[in-house]
């Protein structure tokens, strides 16, 4: 297992005061809080910082950790020396907190093996003294909710889809030992779902203890970026390139839509940026309380290159025929 340098994670010196540690933790917690941070590995960072704080904020645990010595490097292969914690007593056991209030009161599974090997024992022993969590009569606690992000494609929202996701959940056995289980869930992605919406699966969160009921599972929907379309709510936008003569003279052209290719009439005199609305051709409604989105086609006039002699001649002809100053608004 890897040695964790909690001081390095917190960005403080080994001789930092408890106040300095508290301040460092507050700063890092704000930076990496999963509800605030947009960094992709924010949750991982936040858990690491939370684990470091769990040890360093508690003078007992900090002293025990310190006596491993200062010569260890983060990431180095580590095994806890036998009786390393002789003379220390961890009152509350390795884990603090019961029902989960926030990300900082992490599930047992959130702590690293390194933490487990040093401070996990206290937890298991105190559990055993009480006869184990599950066997103790009358003790129960509801399971915490579980949150996860799920990436889908525009097509999944158009048609509905099934996705498999894998969740790591803590499991406490009859002896009070905590292990991590992987649960694979197959989930229906309802047709009509939008970016940023959440699917709530009642009772699919972390299991409760005793008779306590399981928490809920919340899945946040995020769309993979699409090469052709971009999505705003249920409306879908398509930038459609057209030739100058198609825009100027009008034309009947083919355009892709998420529902398949359609024939599109371009009105004569269209300009760059002209917007056409295809009603109801965006993401469909998800329930009777909302309506289908629209597809907006935004014309992008593309300039044909003047490569051959006859193409150049055509541009020269245009130059003679038009009295067109594209910079008239600039006053030159």
């Amino acid at each position: 297992m890897e040695y964790k340098d909690y001081y390095q994670i917190m960005g403080v010196e080994r001789n930092a005061t408890q106040d300095e540690i508290k301040r460092a933790y507050r700063k890092l917690a704000r930076k990496y809080h999963p509800d605030i941070s947009k960094e992709t590995d924010a949750e991982q960072h936040f858990k690491e910082v939370g684990e470091a704080n769990e040890v360093l904020k508690d003078p007992e645990k900090r002293a025990a950790y310190d006596q491993l010595g200062a010569n260890w490097q983060g990431g180095q292969d580590f095994n806890a020396p036998p009786d390393w914690d002789a003379g220390f007593e961890f009152g509350g056991g390795g884990f603090t907190g019961g029902a989960q209030q926030g990300y900082s009161e992490a599930d047992a599974s959130a702590y690293s093996d390194f933490f487990e090997s040093l401070f996990g024992q206290g937890f298991q022993q105190s559990g055993a003294r009480q006869g184990g969590f599950r066997q103790q009569s009358g003790f129960q606690s509801g399971g915490s909710d579980h949150r996860a992000k799920i990436l889908i494609d525009l097509e999944d929202a158009m048609n509905g889809a099934t996705r498999s996701i894998s969740l790591r959940v803590p499991d406490v056995d009859a002896g009070g030992h905590v292990t991590t289980k992987e649960r694979v869930l197959k989930i229906n992605i309802p047709k009509g779902i939008k970016q940023g919406q959440h699917i709530r699966l009642g009772g699919q969160g972390n299991p409760g203890l005793g008779q306590g009921k399981a928490g809920d599972l919340y899945l946040e929907i995020e769309f993979n970026s699409h090469g052709i379309y971009h999505v705003e709510g249920r409306d879908v936008y398509l930038d459609l390139p057209v030739a100058p003569w198609e825009a100027a003279l009008g034309a009947s052209i083919k355009a892709p839509t998420p529902g398949g290719v359609v024939d599109l009439k371009i009105k004569p005199g269209s300009v760059n940026g002209s917007k056409m609305r295809l009603k109801g051709r965006g993401i469909p409604a998800s329930s009777s309380s909302n309506s289908a989105g629209d597809l907006y086609v935004v014309l992008q006039v593309a300039l044909p290159p003047a490569g051959t002699d006859s193409e150049k001649a055509a541009y020269e002809k245009m130059q003679q025929s038009f009295s067109f100053n594209p910079r008239v608004k600039l006053g030159v």
Binding site: T162, D171, T179, T180, K181, E182, R183, V184, L185, K186, I187, N188, P190, I193, K194, Q197, H198, I199, R200, L201, G202, Q204, D216, L217, Y218, L219, S286, S287, S289, N290
Partner: peptide, 28 residues
């Protein structure tokens, strides 16, 4: 690590579940 597979689950779109009483919101 134990793997556990279940059937296909369907949930609600949270934003579409429009009506919650104070009690239901507290429970959730």
């Amino acid at each position: 690590m134990v793997k556990q597979t279940t059937g296909i689950l369907s949930g609600y779109i949270l934003e579409d579940e429009t009506r919650l009483t104070l009690r239901q919101l507290c429970d959730a």
